[in-house]
Structures are given as structure tokens and as C-alpha cells.
Design a protein around this nucleic acid. Structure first.
Lengths: 106, 106
DNA sequence: TCATCGCGTAACCATTTGGTTACCTCATAC
DNA sequence: GTATGAGGTAACCAAATGGTTACGCGATGA
């Protein structure tokens, strides 16, 4: 309990397509669990467990209001990921010399 | 066999700290398996299996030279990840207004 | 007060993951 | 040819993951 979230947790959380879909959904607006669960063909408890993983990775936060728990995305972990990736981006910029072209190709 | 690598595969591959360490090591220069394995306290087959995961995720490529297999990092998947993250970066830039400050804070 | 609604948790199960040791295949050296 | 060294694969195992159903519990509306 109370474990500090790490980069590994962030990657692991994002590895699951259901959880990425949840984040995409939340990017369109915060929502309570039942609203979220409607979009998926799995049971509500399954969604609940995915939300727990996202919560522990600090990718989302819940705020209780009455008997609902509204989830919203939080920026921290992805910003850290961008920092981590920055090292590689620079590496390729140096060694490839054509990063921009790659990024804009599609 | 021969499965096309996906974003999910990239995240899953990067979720393991050993594999991230391998990539960090390879960023400093391509290397054969034995050289790579020396840096870890697990058996060589274990490293070999991690390399297979990275290979299937297209994060590294092997080139055989004699009886050695030299591994090198490849840019594709991380560039795709950067593209995926770009959507969130923009989201926060709009909704947070202080992304730059966050990125440069540390 | 009581039925109900929202949602987390427990218990359980199948599959995947990450490690091990043993073995196999090639390429090189003698 | 034969020994050796690089490194992948097989078989096996424990632990973690992702789903299910059953249940519990606090907030709400009748």
C-alpha cells in the first residue's frame, strides 16, 4: 500500500489497451465509473480494477462526490515519460539527423 | 510468429526495468549478447529472452557477424510513442497552460 | 426505515511473465 | 576432425495479470 509510483508502473499501466482507452475517454472529460464501464464489453469490476492500476500509477485521480467516484486524468507520469523519452529523442536527433522528417512523415 | 509490433508491445517491452536498462546500455553503443549480459546479475538465457522481447517489439535489431550477434537500438517504436504522447502533451498544454514549466522544472 | 444504487473488494481461475538449468546449433581455433 | 565459445531454445516453475461472480458498504430516494 502507498507505494511510490515509478516509471515502470507508468509503462506497465499503459501497456494494456483497455487502460489506454480509459485514458483516451477521460481526456474527453472526467466521468464516474458507470459511465466509463459502459464503453467496454467487460464487467464493471474488471473496469474497476483497471482504474485501480491507473490510480496507483497516478495516471488518474478519483474525487468522491456523493456515492459517485469521478475519475480524471492527471499529467504527472506522462510528463515524466516525456522526459525519459527526451534522452532518446536527442540521441536519434544526433545519430539520425532526420528525426523531424520521421516525425512528420505520417 | 511474425506478429506485427504494436504500441501495446512497445509499452509492455518498456515496462520491465531490465529491458529499459538494456536499451540505455545500447544507446551507449551496439554490443554482442555476452557483453550485455555481463551488466546483469541474471543468467544469460534470461537476458536472451529479454532481447527477444525487445526484438519482437522492433526496439532493437540484431546483426550477425561470425558467431556473434550484435544488438543495436532502432528508432521506430519510440518515435511512434512520441506521436501517441503528443496528443496528451497538447491536451495538457491547453488545459494546464504550463507544460513547459513542468518539463523544465527538473 | 428500507430498498436501491454506485462502486470497491474477495475469492477464484486461466494465461502470461520472468527466472532457472539443460541442451542444441553454428562458427572459430587448434 | 575435435574442442570451444557465442547464443538461442526447451522444459519447467513461481508469481503476476486480467477476467469472472458474489458480496459488502456508504449514500440516496421512497
Amino acid at each position: 500500500m502507498g507505494r511510490r509510483s515509478s516509471t515502470a508502473d507508468t509503462f506497465a499501466a499503459l501497456a494494456d489497451p483497455t487502460r489506454r482507452a480509459l485514458l483516451d475517454r477521460l481526456r474527453a472529460g472526467s466521468a464516474p465509473v458507470n459511465d466509463l464501464a459502459e464503453g467496454f464489453r467487460m464487467s464493471r469490476p474488471a473496469v474497476s480494477k483497471h482504474l485501480r492500476v491507473l490510480r496507483e500509477a497516478r495516471l488518474v485521480a478519483e474525487q468522491r462526490t456523493g456515492r459517485q467516484r469521478v475519475y480524471q486524468i492527471t499529467p504527472g507520469p506522462m510528463l515524466e515519460m516525456l522526459r525519459w523519452l527526451e534522452g532518446y529523442r536527442q540521441f536519434w536527433q544526433l545519430n539520425l539527423g532526420s528525426l523531424k522528417a520521421h516525425l512528420e512523415k505520417k
